[in-house]
């Protein structure tokens, strides 16, 4: 099979292309609003999906480092870097990496979609808490806003997860299998 043909160095370099290419594509998708890709004007959390795909079956420390890096990238696209995406992303990375170790997550894309739904909700909740702590909005505003944003982006992200997360998860599975040999 192809596993025998592909040498480790080739796979490794393809892996870097996949990592940087997918990050670039997801960052650019964040800025666009394609008709049919939005609910109430909200779009999916593309970088969060990338992070979940990255954290699955990875060691905790790499998941956290990935969360910090992706958080910085997401912050770079906003007009103000505070409130930051990093706290929410770290929680998501830790949860995803440790849940996998307890084997809650199956291989199929339905449980992946469910995972993305829960994690988006968690990340948005942490963002809402940050807004509250920084005093940017009143509590009642945040409460309403959180419900709308968290639900719509969680639903959207989980709908897009099979298309965005699954290929990445499969690819990294493949890479790991090669490295073990």
């Amino acid at each position: 099979m192809s596993r025998k043909i592909a040498s480790p160095t080739v796979t490794r370099s393809i892996n870097y292309v996949v990592i940087f290419g997918s990050l670039l594509v997801f960052s650019i998708l964040l800025l666009t609003r394609i008709p049919g890709m939005t609910i109430l004007g909200f779009s999916p959390q593309w970088l969060l999906m990338w992070l979940i795909a990255w954290s699955i079956k990875r060691e905790l420390i790499y998941a956290v480092i990935g969360a910090i890096a992706v958080g910085w990238i997401h912050d770079s696209l906003m007009i103000t870097p505070i409130p930051s995406h990093i706290p929410g992303f770290i929680v998501v990375a830790v949860l995803t990496a440790s849940w996998r170790q307890q084997r809650y997550i199956q291989e199929d894309f339905i449980s992946l979609a469910l995972l993305v739904f829960i994690m988006t909700f968690a990340a948005e909740t942490i963002m809402a808490i940050q807004h509250l702590l920084l005093g940017l909005r009143s509590l009642s505003d945040i409460w309403l806003e959180h419900q709308r944003i968290a639900l719509s982006s969680a639903v959207l992200s989980s709908l897009w997860a099979p298309l965005s997360c699954t290929p990445l998860v499969r690819w990294w599975d493949h890479v790991r299998a090669l490295e073990k040999q």
Partner: peptide
Amino acid sequence: IGRSADSWWQQIT
């Protein structure tokens, strides 16, 4: 050419 990358912010590109 672009909208906000996160729903908590209101920005355009």
